[in-house]
Simulated scan of single mutants.
Amino acid sequence: MSAAVAALSRLPLWQAPMAGGASCPELAAAVAGAGGLGFLAAGYKPVEAMRAEISGLRGRTGRPFGVNLFLPQPPPADPAAVADYALRLADESARYRTPLGDPDRGADDAYEAKVAALLADPVPLVSFTFGCPDAEVLAAFARVGTLTVATVTTVAEALAAHRAGADGLCVQGVEAGGHQGTHRDDPGTDGRGVGLLALLGEIRAAVPLPLVAAGGLMRGSQVAAVLAAGASAAQLGTAFLACPESGANALHKQALTDPAFEGTVLTRAFSGRPARGLVNRFIEDHGRFAPSAYPQVHYLTSGLRQAAARAGDPQGMALWAGQGHRLSRPLPAGRLVELLADELDAAGG
């Protein structure tokens, strides 16, 4: 598998799959063209939209790429808490003159249909977030020549993914922007995630699989550090958000380096699952009240977030960002990959 990972890209630089529009075919193609590994994010998309993005990416590059899937989620432990949170958000609905979304749109993210589509029309790599597929699914991907990578945040999750037959692991440190990819959402562990370098060491000692490091990486010197710690590649998300090819909202891109946003925090405010974003009014007003209910809260607030973006109000948007967000560079993605590679070389990576 180490050789297979190396063959996916000329450089050990992966562009993270960021659901919500940032990881579009234009961004993935630019990264791949510069020697990195581009990724599409299938989360929150109908299977037809996933297929269209794969087709669009193939039309832009012949290089390998990856597609990320979300695992189905169990029902919330306290459904009444979702209704209570909806009452709390009534003022937000009035503020943005938009109704709250339907929290019961479905918790499986069309997972089975997406798996079937990717088995019928294989891609080089499929990664998984919020869990690991069972052994049968992973074996089916292996039969069609697709490599599989499971996102993990603990040693226990890494061991489970290894037993199931994953080809590799994306090790996500607590510094990462967006959702923490925990396999089980336990409110009792909020904020207790492990930093990337420590987590890499723990998992490297416990699991004999190639590791891809993710979490707060913004410079080639940081990539060199995780490679020295045992990773085969580094996956960067926030670093690519500000690129012109990124599908992120312009307000989101600007906020990454806006001194008005003082830092990041893990919050359930927008989705019901811990996710790291820039601290804004919405998080401060509602974060401590948001229940453990994903994706119900995500669908509940989706219209509010879209309305805030239309109104030009970043204080009501989910501004996902890793801890290194102030190091963002609004460069074309291909140029950013080249610069990261130069920095990696200078650091001896």
Rank of each mutant, 00 (worst) to 15 (best):
A4R: 14
A6G: 12
A6K: 14
R10F: 08
P12D: 03
A22S: 14
C24I: 10
L27A: 06
A29V: 10
A30Y: 02
A32L: 07
G33D: 13
L37T: 07
L37W: 10
Y44R: 10
K45W: 12
E48A: 15
M50H: 08
E53N: 14
G59S: 13
R60H: 04
R63Q: 14
R63A: 15
R63F: 09
G66S: 02
L69S: 11
Q73H: 15
P74V: 01
A77C: 00
P79I: 08
A80Q: 14
A80S: 15
A81Y: 02
A81V: 02
Y85I: 03
L87Y: 10
R88Q: 13
L89Y: 07
D91F: 08
R97M: 05
L100V: 02
D102K: 05
D109F: 15
A110V: 11
A113Y: 05
A117F: 07
L119M: 05
V123Q: 11
L125T: 04
V126G: 06
S127A: 09
F128L: 02
F130R: 08
C132E: 02
E136V: 12
F141C: 08
R143Y: 02
T148G: 04
V149W: 00
T151H: 03
T153I: 03
T153Y: 01
V155N: 06
A156E: 15
A158N: 04
A161M: 00
H162M: 10
A164I: 01
G165C: 08
G165W: 09
G168C: 05
L169A: 03
C170Y: 07
V171L: 01
G173T: 07
E175F: 05
E175N: 03
H179L: 12
Q180G: 13
T182C: 13
R184D: 13
D186P: 00
D186R: 08
G188D: 11
D190R: 11
D190P: 06
D190F: 12
G191E: 04
L196C: 10
L197Y: 03
I203F: 00
A206S: 13
A206L: 08
L209N: 07
L209W: 05
P210R: 06
L211N: 06
A214S: 15
M218L: 11
G220S: 09
Q222H: 11
V223I: 15
V223C: 12
L227D: 08
A229N: 02
L241K: 05
E245S: 03
G247K: 11
Q254H: 14
F261C: 09
E262G: 09
G263P: 01
G263W: 01
G263A: 08
T264H: 01
L266Y: 13
R273N: 05
A275D: 03
R276I: 05
R276N: 07
V279I: 14
R281K: 08
I283D: 09
G287N: 08
P291F: 05
Y294W: 04
P295M: 03
V297H: 01
Y299Q: 12
G303N: 12
G303S: 06
G303M: 01
Q306G: 14
A307N: 01
A308C: 08
A308E: 09
R310L: 15
D313G: 10
G316V: 07
M317H: 05
A321L: 07
A321R: 02
L327K: 10
P330S: 03
G334P: 01
L336F: 00
V337D: 07
L339W: 10
L340S: 04
E343D: 04
D345K: 14
D345A: 15
G348F: 12
